[in-house]
Design a protein around this nucleic acid. Sequence first.
DNA 1: TATGAATGAGGCTTCATTCAT
DNA 2: GATGAATGAAGCCTCATTCAT
Lengths: 217, 217, 217, 217
Amino acid sequence: MTQAPATAAVKVAKLNRVERNAWTKRKIFDAATKVVGRFGYAEASVARITEEAGVAQGTFYNHFENRQELLDQLLPKIGMDMVRFIRDRTGTADAARQEIKRFGAFFDFIREVPEFLRILNEAEFFAPIGYQKHLDNISTAYVRIMRRARHAGAIEDFSDEEFEAIVHMFMGARGYLSRRYSYANGAVTAVPVHVISAYEKLITRGLFGPRNENQQP
Amino acid sequence: MTQAPATAAVKVAKLNRVERNAWTKRKIFDAATKVVGRFGYAEASVARITEEAGVAQGTFYNHFENRQELLDQLLPKIGMDMVRFIRDRTGTADAARQEIKRFGAFFDFIREVPEFLRILNEAEFFAPIGYQKHLDNISTAYVRIMRRARHAGAIEDFSDEEFEAIVHMFMGARGYLSRRYSYANGAVTAVPVHVISAYEKLITRGLFGPRNENQQP
Amino acid sequence: MTQAPATAAVKVAKLNRVERNAWTKRKIFDAATKVVGRFGYAEASVARITEEAGVAQGTFYNHFENRQELLDQLLPKIGMDMVRFIRDRTGTADAARQEIKRFGAFFDFIREVPEFLRILNEAEFFAPIGYQKHLDNISTAYVRIMRRARHAGAIEDFSDEEFEAIVHMFMGARGYLSRRYSYANGAVTAVPVHVISAYEKLITRGLFGPRNENQQP
Amino acid sequence: MTQAPATAAVKVAKLNRVERNAWTKRKIFDAATKVVGRFGYAEASVARITEEAGVAQGTFYNHFENRQELLDQLLPKIGMDMVRFIRDRTGTADAARQEIKRFGAFFDFIREVPEFLRILNEAEFFAPIGYQKHLDNISTAYVRIMRRARHAGAIEDFSDEEFEAIVHMFMGARGYLSRRYSYANGAVTAVPVHVISAYEKLITRGLFGPRNENQQP
DNA sequence: TATGAATGAGGCTTCATTCAT
DNA sequence: GATGAATGAAGCCTCATTCAT
């Protein structure tokens, strides 16, 4: 989805210098995506990446300062693909229903881009800069959505700071669930319905539901 | 808390062969806990661990098959310490209140055993076997608690499978929150109150609250 | 002094092909002088030199066979600048006084062209061909001076071969002294007076002084 | 001379752990001496040194922190061998004669330990720490000798500071001469007599000779 | 002639593991 | 059981040089 990978058949012969340059960088980037998705960051040596890309090891350093720089670009890039993907299928229903849609779309995206899961999960330790960038991207967008829902009356009683915490909980929850349920023996599979339903209940009542009567002040 | 470290003053001279053996193994284990807590799994080389333990590198392999085996034992061990710690301060209030207590106790434990955070967070990628073991330990215990709450009428409308999903969401949320809020510049700090309050609202309404009226069938 | 660097404002637009060619070569040469002077031969990569010169790496090989060829041209070129510089301020005093002047002028030159010191000192190992060329240039000129002094009666009792040895001693002494005294914390500074006076005594007595009476036959 | 190289036939089997350790370190050290002597510091890669020593590359790092550390030990070590060598053949003649002896012994040492020349000459740029250490060793000892000669009345009219400068001139002169005359096509040869005689005249008159009458005040 | 991406050999260093003492 | 030196594979990166445009 999102973009045709650089490795698709392309008339290479026709490219000028600038294009060839971009094309090579793209080859390396795509190769890294594949390699990290398959083996994890730790096993994503420059040798492996360049071999997958079909270029010499030295070529790598014409396009990236060092190995880490590339690794740190991986997640933000794919993360933005994900944001677009989810946005495209959120629809216009009420806020609660939209959030459920988003939750589902997240898991759909994982199936579309199976590399994403590892790239996301391991990033915290192997690509911390990219991870932080991604987190900022996501949580900013997410908090904005929540504030709109609050403004529209769909959410009561949560402050902005609490939104931020909630967003982190959601991201954490998704991560855990995806790891637990989506990795069936290597391949990525659909998330069971009971996971969706559990999330739905928790969210609709907990976030979008009415203020709890018997809650202490 | 939990257990006196092996490095406490002990009459080494008086130990018999079996005890000396256990004592050495314990020294290595404790050293690994410290090293991983401070530097992470990736930097926890056998050389560093044995140096911290004050034994020779070769000694390591008299007690552990290989490096990975030790790393995989770290989390399950400390994880059980955590379970005990949390259980001890859960109290006997109503189910919802207990869950809030547990949430708080989790963050208290992190402050008591600062190594825990890294050992837990990185385990998924550096000690996957130990991580799985830990997850099983925790989720089993957690689901049992929820089932009891349901049986006592505090939770309605969640199936066993949904409980398992909920538990993963909780664990994921805690993990994210701890990473986001507990690591202030290296030291481990308290979690802000708005995080607690957001969690409380989400849980009490979402999990322990009444069935939502206007929810679709 | 010596020559205007190529980077001075020049009407590039007006140059014909031959001139443009020479101009580019000169830019590279000057850049190499700067780079070697600042970082030493070892750090003077083609990439660094061409960057300093503001041309592409490939351009380098249109003007020099390879990196070494350029490096080997550096010292002989600046060395000749030095010879002219020293000759210009030697004056017409008696031979001994002239030699002292030369000694001082050497250190003056170092201050005028601060790159010279590194280019000279490291050349022996990084640009041996250029070094040899420089040595030949210098010692030929120097020996000629001595022979003239002997012919004028200012020096007694030294053969031509001994002159050559003496010249090498002088060059070695200057090199050592310049390294020891001229490089004060990075910048090039003046040589202390006691160095000058020591040299003066050694030379005036040893070389230009009378034959020693109590010397064995 | 000096010490039997580690590679001499030795009953390796009989060595205990400590001795084996020292023996291995010595093998590496000696190999480095040979390699640097033959190819220079720049070509003295760890791979080459360990191959020459007959050990694995990793072994190197059990004995030296890194490549540079070893390189910086080379010169001071051999330099001290040289000092002993020269001292042993200086004799008890008068100060001037002793200095001539020292000059000759220096060149004898070069013939005994042909690696010395390159190790010394290149050290300034490739092993600056070792070079400085060596310089300090030598000049301290040398200045002490001169002060004794002055005290004994053999030298007049030189201050301590001037001695230091003189010593540097001597060292520089020897270096230059050795490079010029001792390296005949790769092999190390004897220094021609005219070099010795030139030095002798310069020194006996310049340093040990009487105060020059017609010298300006 | 100028360009600058591509190449690939080679350098230094780390580290889990083995094994003789 | 304890020791710690030895091993060698593997990783990251640099850089002179080539060559198609």
